[in-house]
Amino acid sequence: MQIDREQLMRRKLPPGYARVVMPLVLSILMSGVVSAVATASNIGPGASFTAAWPNAWVASWMVAFPTLLVVLPLVRRLVAIIVEQPR
């Protein structure tokens, strides 16, 4: 069963959800990368990395997501002060 593009477009969330979805996706990606780098630098690549990294990722994400929810509005304000807005 193949979903066409029009069906996919109708399944999008309303714009108000962007406040939560953006920090959610950003926190998943960033905590994954940062925890992978930290884990690899501490224990090196290999079987021990594969066993340790998922736990490090979950712990990192549990801090990253709520932090982004709180900090992102402040960051947007600071960026608006520093960067000229389009006209």
Rank of each mutant, 00 (worst) to 15 (best):
M1Q: 01
M1V: 03
I3C: 00
D4H: 01
R5W: 03
Q7Y: 00
L8K: 00
M9L: 04
R10E: 02
R10Q: 04
R10H: 00
R11W: 00
R11V: 01
L13C: 02
L13G: 02
P15Y: 01
Y17P: 01
A18G: 03
R19V: 05
V21Q: 03
V21F: 06
M22S: 07
M22N: 11
L26Q: 11
S27Q: 07
I28A: 15
L29P: 07
M30I: 13
M30C: 12
S31A: 11
V33Q: 08
V33D: 11
A36S: 14
A36Q: 03
V37F: 14
A38Q: 13
A38W: 10
A38E: 11
A40S: 08
N42G: 14
N42R: 09
I43P: 05
I43W: 02
I43H: 03
G44M: 05
P45E: 13
G46C: 07
A47K: 06
S48W: 01
S48V: 05
T50A: 14
T50S: 12
A51G: 04
W53T: 01
P54T: 09
P54D: 13
N55A: 13
V58T: 14
V58H: 12
V58G: 12
V58A: 14
A59E: 10
S60E: 07
W61T: 10
M62W: 09
V63Y: 15
V63N: 14
V63F: 15
A64C: 11
P66D: 15
T67M: 15
T67I: 11
L68A: 13
L69I: 09
L69M: 15
V71W: 01
V71H: 03
L72S: 14
L72N: 11
L74P: 03
L74C: 08
R77M: 10
L78K: 02
V79W: 15
A80F: 13
I81N: 08
I81C: 09
V83R: 14
V83L: 06
V83G: 07
P86Q: 08
